[in-house]
Amino acid sequence: MQKESSNTIKKPLSDLQKKLLNDFQHGLPLTPTPYLDIAKELGVTEDEVLNALTELQESKMVSRVGAVFRPNRIGVSTLAAMSVPSERINEVAAIVNAYPQVNHNYEREHVFNMWFVITASDNDQLDSVLKDMELKTGLSPMSLPMVEDYHIDLGFPLQWGEESA
């Protein structure tokens, strides 16, 4: 579990890293040598690109470099929420997180204080995970599956401050 407040930037981003983050959030070329192709475009070496990406990943500023799958295209998913007594948060989180089908889990400031995404191979598996969770925690998850997706995914615009935050 990571505490968000410990997760601050320790080292300023290099210009190359900013460019990689901004320009290649959605545009890693599908070519035999994608890193070399990016390097050529940015006027740097392939090693510099690979090192910059490795550093971004090791410092946790990018969670990964790879394919982003669209929800509900492979498998089915839902956003579930639970109202967990504050003294049981860690215990319940451990139970919920143990399911490989749970890929995100956030504690939020609300009566519904635990929010997580469940992705399963089909609806039967999804239902059985929800039921099993209820059995193990004694708490009933509220399931809010996506009905429609309005997001136009162009990556996320990272507006750097003047002095580069």
Binding site: N7, V62, A165
Partner: peptide
């Protein structure tokens, strides 16, 4: 490429951790 064309893959790239980025 085909999985991108039919929308199974949205994009290939860096997935930023917004929190760590400030």
């Amino acid at each position: 490429q085909r999985m991108q064309d039919i929308g199974v893959i949205r994009r290939i790239g860096a997935v930023p951790n917004h929190y760590a980025l400030g």
